[in-house]
Design a protein around this nucleic acid. Sequence first.
DNA 1: AAAATAGTGTCTCTAAGACAATATGCG
DNA 2: CGCATATTGTCTTAGAGACACTATTTT
Lengths: 233, 233
Amino acid sequence: MEERHAIQTSVDPVIFTVFDGQLHTLVVKRTIEPYKGCWSLPGGLVDTEQDLDLHSAALRKLKEKTNVAAPYLEQVETVGSASRDPRGWSVTVVYYALMPRPEIALAATHGASEVRWEPVTDGTAAIPLAFDHEKLVRLALERLRAKVGYTSVAVHLLPEPFTFLDIQHIHEVILGRKVEKKSLMRRYLGSGVIEEAQGARKEGRMRPAQLYRLKDRRTIHYFTRTMEGPREE
Amino acid sequence: MEERHAIQTSVDPVIFTVFDGQLHTLVVKRTIEPYKGCWSLPGGLVDTEQDLDLHSAALRKLKEKTNVAAPYLEQVETVGSASRDPRGWSVTVVYYALMPRPEIALAATHGASEVRWEPVTDGTAAIPLAFDHEKLVRLALERLRAKVGYTSVAVHLLPEPFTFLDIQHIHEVILGRKVEKKSLMRRYLGSGVIEEAQGARKEGRMRPAQLYRLKDRRTIHYFTRTMEGPREE
DNA sequence: AAAATAGTGTCTCTAAGACAATATGCG
DNA sequence: CGCATATTGTCTTAGAGACACTATTTT
């Protein structure tokens, strides 16, 4: 009876950050079988002795690999089947986390001989990943893309303070298309999710841009319309 | 090592249907400890010997209690902690299912001495439920309400064929407020999710209403705006 | 024709797309 | 001043809310 119902349960955070004009996700090299030597998501089994709940299990994994304690973290979906792990039935709870690049101090510890940022291009990571982790990345990316269209979630990828050009870039990188800065200004200024920060940033010999910061790093704002992209002909 | 990571895993479907002008959810009476004799969601442990994956585990539970094989079924969220079950760490994957009332043949089997439809009023079921099931119902209802505002999901609660008055009623029951029928007609006629069915329905001595049916009982349509409700003053 | 609901017309409003017109700070 | 980018103005458009008006049956 017991062994029919007790299931290997893990959390798999898909950690997104943006640099070099591209979305990246954190992968670690596996040091044990199965898939030894393959890259995989920085997840792992829930530990019933140290984790109080699923959310804190995900936070623990994040902390171990990136040393970031409180990023934006959201549950995506739970995948479980008899076939996804060769050792038998398993369940994994997929999260995605957004963190500004500068805050991250990668740590190669806890059984991950290597930790690395892998670019996420059209749909998935460029290199093959262990288990069904490519599918998990795709699930997380789909959720992120959808949510960027009708919430303020994208700005959680930006280090503070940021400009509207930064906001525009981050949207364009995630969605993979041009976005009207005017629309973003209407949204972000009208919703009160950001506030002005001191100073301005000069990129060359042109007019400096106003700096902003998030008012609340824990929550996101829901807009009532989805950004639709360029008009059809 | 093993027992630190293998976790009791269940699926909990929150089954919604509408009758008597109210949203209802299916509850079953527990026949074993803990919470023996209490009402609970019609879920249960994933069985690694008969379930291939989580989704089919949820479908199995649904089939056992309602005899409906293919309703609209969507994963909501996964809740897991050391404290939600007195027996120790447990994880449950919450789903919500929508089914038209007439299709359901309740079955009192499989350890559920009683099965019953419980009205869901403002936020939760009227009676107390076992474990954290009231919270799970609330999660499912929040998801349903949000999704009704920007998708065609609500019509999956209707038996076919249906009229626009039916569509309007179902939206109003779920959202708990008046909805403009004109807006619904624009949405549903413009998106092509429904098609005309033969005949018309006469409610009394008035003009009969055109009948419609869903084109696709498996998918939902996403609109680009959220219905916002009455204008503010 | 009257009753009563079905379905249409259409006005207003909000926010997005598009892009022109200004504003600003620096060399 | 002139450059290069920042910010604002504003026109168009899609679709929601509101609600009056017309259509279609049965009695």
